[in-house]
Design a protein around this nucleic acid. Structure first.
Lengths: 146, 146
DNA sequence: TGTATACTCTACCAAGGTAATAGAGATTAT
DNA sequence: ATAATCTCTATTACCTTGGTAGAGTATACA
């Protein structure tokens, strides 16, 4: 697996919306400036996130984006998978993959699957609420390291 | 991190040599056929592995490749890093990377680092001797799953 | 010393993905 | 009306990956 810029931007965008949850809508230029992301690129990322059901939008004046679900109900892993695809470090970890006629019995595949599992175990156990809390704690100077 | 075909081939090549350790040299066409890898591509992979100090070679008749070190002294992680680069799922996990002026305090970076650490923890604790044992056990019908 | 065998090196190429950029179109508040 | 805002489709430049090609060098052995 590899986190692309698009994936990175998507996560930051969702976090940004999570930090503004229940308050105001956030516009693309506003967010682009705050996160230092090319506005036209962020635009596409947000469109994707909308198609994925993570965010909602409103056009016209007073328009902008907002989270489709509460931050506590959005896991990091969901966003990562939706934007950057499956978690495994190599294609053959997919369940569908059945074309492995490796003479040495796929000894590596098991390892890649283990890595995919532990990786999933991390990103599927972190919600955007967790991140919001962390950011807010940092702002207040209560810096702690997990 | 992403395991490329080149990385995949490299690991299989080293395993193949590990299985022939202390016996004979293995030629490129022979290995290419056994592992089902394009010979000219495997050629380049083996050259790289040689530059990395993993394998040795001998030209001419009775030439071929052999492992530079005993299988027990070659970790999976070494080969992966040498061929496919650093382990993290995104560039910003590198220690050298210092250009992170993310307003929300790099909350994601810490997560990528954790993933990189657990991944390293897996591939740096498996040697090619372990894999050789596993393959041999499988051959004898003693199939066990870790 | 010739020759077959095998590794070495450099260059090249096609396909696909990534990270943008551009611009016209649709919607909404005032 | 009009300004602000999201929506959609193309296009671009660049890079990586996976693979191919071919000439060159070293070695064993008859």
């Amino acid at each position: 697996m590899r986190i692309t810029y698009k994936g990175d931007y998507a996560l930051k965008a969702v976090l940004d919306l999570a930090l503004h949850y229940k308050n105001s809508r956030v516009t693309i230029p506003e967010m682009a400036k705050r996160l230092d992301i090319p506005a036209k690129f962020l635009e596409q990322v947000l469109l994707d996130l909308k198609r994925g059901g993570f965010v909602e939008s409103r056009r016209g004046k007073v328009g902008g984006y907002l989270l489709a679900r509460p931050p506590a109900q959005i896991k990091l892993g969901e966003v990562v998978r939706f934007i950057d695809g499956p978690i495994g470090p190599i294609a053959c970890v997919e369940i569908k993959y059945r074309d492995c006629r490796e003479i040495y019995g796929c000894v590596f595949r098991k390892i890649w699957q283990r890595i995919a599992e532990t990786t999933s175990g991390i990103i599927d156990n972190i919600t955007f609420e967790d991140l919001v809390k962390e950011v807010k704690a940092k702002k207040e100077g209560l810096v702690y390291t997990i």
